[in-house]
């Protein structure tokens, strides 16, 4: 019994230690003036790896999710004679919830895990140590560009996801199921407010971007430098990111859309 308590206590302290370490890690990576001439090409390269290369999965997922939402929505609303409201339902679900959350989860799986694996491998093959020995701070050179790329790429991906989703939903509702084009858009526009819906979604995506990128990069840097260590680290990235995104989503939704 006491032994079990001790174990819990120890893992609690361990978690605090890891949080502290990762906090210091992020602070040291980001603060301080970067040498723009050298940092910019690194950043752009990472933005390509993390943003542009994620486009296919984000666009395809957005399209399908939008189409399914529209289809399901129509099926339910048509019983109440309210199928004109399908545009409204589609836009609000996407912009407020599904856009940020699903994009974040996909991003964690695709870009997050590849960041973790890449950094973990650099650590295992002593490239990180080599950088240190060559007098270059690996946190600035390797980590910071990847973190910043994540922060910027993800919100952009969310917006692309939303637009593609709405378009997919439009295709299904108007072109296939016969909802009237005009009411589809006007209902949507009337019920979607730019500031409280779209911008709140953007805020969510920024928060998620921060969480996912931080977790991905830290897990890679902190990984045990063996092949199974890297495997474990990538798994942890995906699991922790997903949990963080879902948890933060609840908190943010309660704050933004709850009526308290």
């Amino acid at each position: 019994m006491i032994a079990r308590l001790r174990m819990i206590g120890r893992s609690g302290l361990n978690v605090l230690q890891i949080l502290g370490r990762s906090g210091v890690f992020v602070a040291m990576s980001l603060f301080g003036v970067p040498n723009l001439r050298r940092a910019l090409p690194l950043f752009i390269k990472q933005l390509y790896a993390v943003g542009v290369l994620s486009l296919p999965i984000i666009v395809v997922s957005g399209l399908f999710i939008g189409m399914v939402l529209s289809l399901q929505g129509y099926t339910i609303l048509v019983d109440y004679g309210s199928e004109q409201a399908v545009g409204q339902m589609l836009a609000l679900s996407l912009v407020r919830e599904l856009g940020p959350v699903v994009t974040a989860l996909l991003f964690a799986g695709r870009a997050g895990s590849s960041l973790t694996a890449e950094i973990g491998l650099m650590k295992a093959t002593e490239q990180i140590t080599s950088l240190e020995m060559l007098g270059i701070d690996p946190l600035r050179y390797v980590i910071a560009p990847r973190l910043l790329a994540g922060f910027i790429a993800m919100p952009l991906l969310v917006m692309i996801f939303n637009v593609v989703g709405v378009w997919g939903g439009y295709l299904v509702a108007v072109d296939w199921l016969g909802v009237y084009d005009g009411s589809f858009w006007s209902n949507m526009q009337n019920s979607t407010d730019f500031y409280s819906d779209v911008m709140n979604g953007v805020i969510k995506s920024i928060v998620f971007a921060f969480a996912v990128s931080w977790i991905a990069v830290f897990q890679g840097y902190d990984s045990v430098p063996t092949s199974e260590g890297i495997g474990r680290a990538t798994t942890k990235t995906v699991v922790y990111s997903s949990l963080a995104v879902l948890g933060l989503d609840f908190i943010l939704t309660a704050v933004m859309f709850g009526d308290f």
Partner: peptide
């Protein structure tokens, strides 16, 4: 300077 066992070239 340090030469690592694996060389540690940037891949």
């Amino acid at each position: 300077g340090m030469l690592f066992q694996s060389g540690a070239l940037f891949t």
